[in-house]
Nucleic acid binder design. Structure first.
Lengths: 371, 371
DNA sequence: TCTCTTAAAACAATCGTTTGCGCAAAACGT
DNA sequence: ACGTTTTGCGCAAACGATTGTTTTAAGAGA
C-alpha cells in the first residue's frame, strides 16, 4: 500500500505550524475532496466527514482535531460534492419545476417564488420548460426522476392526465400549480377561478350590462372551465339567460383574442361588454377594437383575467381579476416540502387562492340597461 | 455468494417466454438499478451497463444477450441514475443559470431560450434567482459548483466584479449575458447598446428634436453606460451639445422612471423628447406624463429600450429599441457549449447582438425644430 | 505490572455507474 | 487430439461522501 504513515506524520507536524502549504494547494485545479483534506491533515476521511457534518461531538472527535480540520477545510474552500452526497444519502436537495412557458409573466412569477422558497429550504431547482407540449412534459418528468429530484412543482400543460396518474401513489411528491384535474387526487394550488370570474361578471352586471361576451382560453383546462362556470353563475344569479353563442375562443393567445373579437363585433353588434379570461386574449381584443374604431369603455367595456404590470398603462387602464401568482408559487413550494419532509403519504386536497378585482377604467356604467 | 446460476437459468427461461414478471416487479417502489436488472436477467452489471450505453458491439456482447437486456430494461422502465453516472464520469450534463430577476420579461426570455438550447444538448439547467444581490450571486455560484455543473450562464448583478475574477482561468466555463465587464476577460453576449441608443437618439433628432432627455437605469452597469454613450455620440454627431442635466435616473425600475420624469417636467419644461433606457423606466414616465396631462407624442415624444409584447397596445404605441433576448439566450448557450465541449481554454471575446428600432407612434415630427 | 474502561480515530461497506483487464469456453487450424 | 485465436462476459476498482463497526492508544484501577 501507500506509505500512509509517512504522509501522516509529515503533514500532521506541518499542519500544527502556522505555515499553511497554501501555495502548493492553490495550484491544484480541481475541487478539494475529503480525501485530499485527509492527506493534508493526516486524519482519516471518516473523521473529516464527521467534523464537517457537525457530528464531531457525537463521535468524540477531539477539539484539537476538530478545529484543525475546520481550519484546513476553510483554507481549501472545501465544498462537499453534492453528487456523492446525494448518492449515498439518497437526498439530492433538489426539486424540479416544470412550466409550460417561462417567458409568460404569469408563470415567470410562479417560477420566481418557487425558486426563492426552495432556496430557503436549502434546496435547488432544476427548471424545465415544457413548451405547452405534453410530450415534453412527460420527458421532463422522466429527466427529473433520473436526476433524483425529491419532488416537483408542475404546471401541467393540461389536457391529458394519463401520464400523471402514476404519481398519485406518492412515489415522487408532486404538486400541481394553476391547472389541475378535479378527478386526479394530486395536491394542487390554483386561484379561485369561479369566484373571480363571477365577481368580474357581476361588476359588469352591476354597471347595467346584460349582453356580456366571454372570451375564453384553452378548453378542458381547469382554469378555463372554472372561469366559464363563474361567468355563467353570475348571469344565472341575476336572471340573465346564458347565451352560448357569446362564449367564444379556444386558446390563451393574443391571436385568438383578436380573431374572436373581430368576429364578435360582426355577428353580435349588440354586445357592449367583454369578459376576457386571460391577459393575452385581452390584448388581442384591444387590437381588434382599435381596428374597428370602438372605444373602451365608451363603446364597449372589458374586464380581463390576470393583472400584468402594464395593465394600468394601457390606452384605457384595464379592470382586471388579479391572481396572486407569487403566493401561488409560495404555497406550492410549501405544500411540496410538507410532503417531502413528512414522508407520510400525499396530501390529497388542493388549495384555491382568492382573486382580487382591480377596478380601473375599462368598464362603463350603462344608464339605461341595454337589451 | 448468491446462487446466481439459479436465478440465471430461472429468469432467462421465463424472459424468453412472453410472460413478463411485471406483477412482482411493478410492486417494488424504487427506481430499478443496474444491479436489479442484473439479478433479473442473470447477466452481470457490467454487461447491462455496456448494452445500455450502446457499447454492446465494442465489447462483443452477443445479439441475444443484448436484446434480452434491452427488453428487460424497457419493461422495468430503467433510467440510469444521473448522480452515480455523474460521479463516475465527472459529467453531470447540467449547467447553471443565474438571473437577477426571473420575473422580469427580459430575463425570462433569456432563461427560456437558455433552457431550450440546453435541452437540445441533452443537458438540464439549475436555476438561481440572484434577486439583484451580489451576495446571493456569489452564493449561487458556489452552490452550482458543489453540484458539479459543467458551466454557467450568468446575468451578473453587475457592480462588483471581484468574485468573478477567479473564473477567468477557465476552471468552470462561464458566459456572461446582458451585463459584462470590459476589463474582465470573460466571454459574454450582450446587445449592441451604443448603436441601439444612437439609432434611437438619431430618430428623435431626425424628427427635429434637439432637447432630448435621457432616462437612465442602474449606473456602472455595462448596458447603461453603453446606452448613455450611444446617446451622447448621436448628439455629438449632429452637433448638439450634451447637457448632463438632461441625463437623469439611477435604477431600472418603474418608480425611478416616474420620479425622474416628474422632476424633469418641472425643471426642464422645454424638453420635448425622452429617451428611456429601459422599459420599466418608460412605464414610469408614461404614468408621470399622464398625471401631468401631457400627451404622447403631441406634447412629448418617447423612445424606449426593450420591446415588451404590450408595447403596441399602450395608450400611444411605443417606438422602441428591441433587443433580441431570445437570440441572446441562444447565443449564450452556444458559447457555453463551445467551451464545455472543446475543453481548450476559454473564449476571450464577447458578442454584441444588433438591436432593431421599431417605429410606432410615440415620436412626433417637429415642424420647426425647437430650441 | 497487568487488565479494564474509555476516548479518539480508522476500516470497510455502501450508494449506482463505468471501464481496464482478465478469464473461460467455444471455434478454429493442423 | 491439441495449441491458438476468437467470442462473450465478469471481476474489481474507481468516483466522493456517509456510517456502523473496529481498532488503537491512553488512562484508571488493582
Amino acid at each position: 500500500m501507500i506509505n500512509k504513515k509517512d504522509i501522516d506524520s509529515a503533514t500532521s507536524t506541518t499542519s500544527t505550524t502556522s505555515q499553511p502549504h497554501s501555495s502548493s494547494l492553490a495550484s491544484t485545479n480541481t475541487q478539494p475532496t475529503l480525501k485530499r483534506i485527509a492527506h493534508e491533515s493526516g486524519v482519516s476521511v471518516t473523521t473529516i466527514s464527521r467534523v464537517l457534518t457537525g457530528q464531531a461531538s457525537r463521535y468524540r472527535i477531539s477539539k484539537k482535531t476538530e478545529t484543525a480540520v475546520r481550519k484546513l477545510a476553510k483554507e481549501l474552500d472545501f465544498v462537499p460534492n453534492q453528487l456523492a452526497r446525494g448518492l449515498r444519502l439518497k437526498k439530492t436537495l433538489t426539486i424540479g419545476l416544470v412550466i409550460p412557458d417561462i417567458s409568460n409573466p404569469f408563470f415567470a412569477g410562479i417560477a420566481q417564488q418557487a425558486t426563492l422558497g426552495t432556496r430557503k429550504h436549502g434546496y435547488s431547482v432544476i427548471l424545465c420548460d415544457s413548451q405547452d407540449s405534453t410530450e415534453l412534459e412527460i420527458q421532463s418528468l422522466g429527466l427529473l426522476q433520473s436526476r433524483n429530484v425529491e419532488g416537483v412543482v408542475l404546471c401541467p400543460v393540461g389536457q391529458s392526465t394519463d401520464h400523471l396518474a402514476e404519481y398519485v401513489g406518492g412515489r415522487l411528491p408532486i404538486v400541481l400549480v394553476d391547472r389541475f384535474y378535479p378527478e386526479l387526487p394530486l395536491p394542487y394550488v390554483s386561484s379561485d377561478n369561479v369566484s373571480g370570474a363571477k365577481q368580474a361578471t357581476e361588476l359588469l352586471i352591476e354597471n347595467g350590462h346584460r349582453r356580456i361576451a366571454c372570451l375564453q382560453g384553452l378548453r378542458h383546462t381547469s382554469p378555463n372551465e372554472f372561469r366559464v362556470r363563474g361567468y355563467k353563475e353570475a348571469l344565472t344569479k341575476h336572471h340573465i339567460p346564458v347565451d352560448e353563442t357569446l362564449i367564444v375562443g379556444d386558446s390563451f393567445t393574443e391571436q385568438s383574442g383578436y380573431i374572436e373579437t373581430k368576429l364578435l363585433l360582426k355577428t353580435q353588434p349588440d354586445v357592449k361588454a367583454i369578459l376576457s379570461l386571460c391577459n393575452l386574449n385581452a390584448l388581442g381584443a384591444i387590437r381588434a377594437l382599435a381596428e374597428e374604431k370602438r372605444n373602451v369603455p365608451e363603446d364597449i367595456s372589458i374586464v380581463s383575467f390576470d393583472d400584468p404590470p402594464y395593465s394600468a398603462y394601457l390606452a384605457t387602464p384595464m379592470t382586471t381579476v388579479a391572481q396572486s401568482y407569487s403566493e401561488m408559487g409560495e404555497v406550492a413550494v410549501k405544500l411540496l416540502f410538507d410532503q417531502i419532509q413528512s414522508s407520510r403519504g400525499q396530501t390529497k386536497g388542493g388549495i384555491l387562492l382568492p382573486t382580487t378585482l382591480i377596478k380601473r377604467k375599462s368598464v362603463k356604467r350603462l344608464e339605461s340597461p341595454s337589451n
